[in-house]
Amino acid sequence: MPHSPSCVLAAATGPTSLPNPTGSPPAHGLPSASSTSTHTFHVPISRRLNLASETTLQLSEPNPPPSTLSPPRNEPPKTHTMSVIREHTSATLSDAWRTIDIDSLDPDKVFDISTLHPAIPETSVNEVRALHGQVRQLLQGRDTEGALRGCLEFPVYNGDNAARDAHLQTVLEVLQSIKASEMNPMLVRIFNSEGGSECLDVLMKYLYKGMANSANVAPKSPMKPMATGFSQIGGRSMASHDSTGAAMSVLLSWHEKVVEVAGLGCIGRVMTDWRRV
């Protein structure tokens, strides 16, 4: 509803400041002070909620003369418009606009995420098994470093779950067969060789995968709420727990040694890398 802020100001400040004391409608169609104040009470509450209080004064005129609808040409500085804006935003203040999909008309909204990276050849379960056989031979020949390098140089980046899990088992088998005293010098040798940094990144990926797997295995029985209100995961059946605990301790000690050699950068690379094992 267009209105002149000067009229509003006049009406709001009361009858003394009214320029036209005769009671006849002034040029801007402002009602006399008495009628304004009485009519304000009769404005429906819903309309008063939607608009600023200054505007309700204007609305209070039931049938304004047609000429009053045209706004004056030269508007004085809008000191009162601020309050109108504030009233509107506080009424409409919600987070609903955050859920608007502003990309809904964008033709490039959805794209094939696989186009972002070069393709990696798929590894089949049979290849993983063949590698496992070779690694086992190296282990029997006491060449643990060769075995470790062998399985780290051929990670399964693209393959089905069976292939991925089979390769994880191969890596874990190698890790468990290496003595604690041999870990550090072996890792340093691998790190300083050609492509060694990459190898340790792969090792780190398998360490995390191994930890994730054993964590999934651990809670065999569901949580049992106890009378005290506490709940205990897994209860006391430690038979399977012990073996995963042992596996976890191997992984943790390897993790510590890998971070010592390859630094925190290695962990960052595992987290950012799009090639998952």
């Binding site: 630094g263 950068g265 690379r269």
Partner: peptide, 13 residues
């Protein structure tokens, strides 16, 4: 390109 040389470090990014 003639060469793409990546240096992965032990440091933070």
């Amino acid at each position: 390109p003639k060469a793409i040389l990546a240096v992965s470090t032990q440091l933070l990014p």
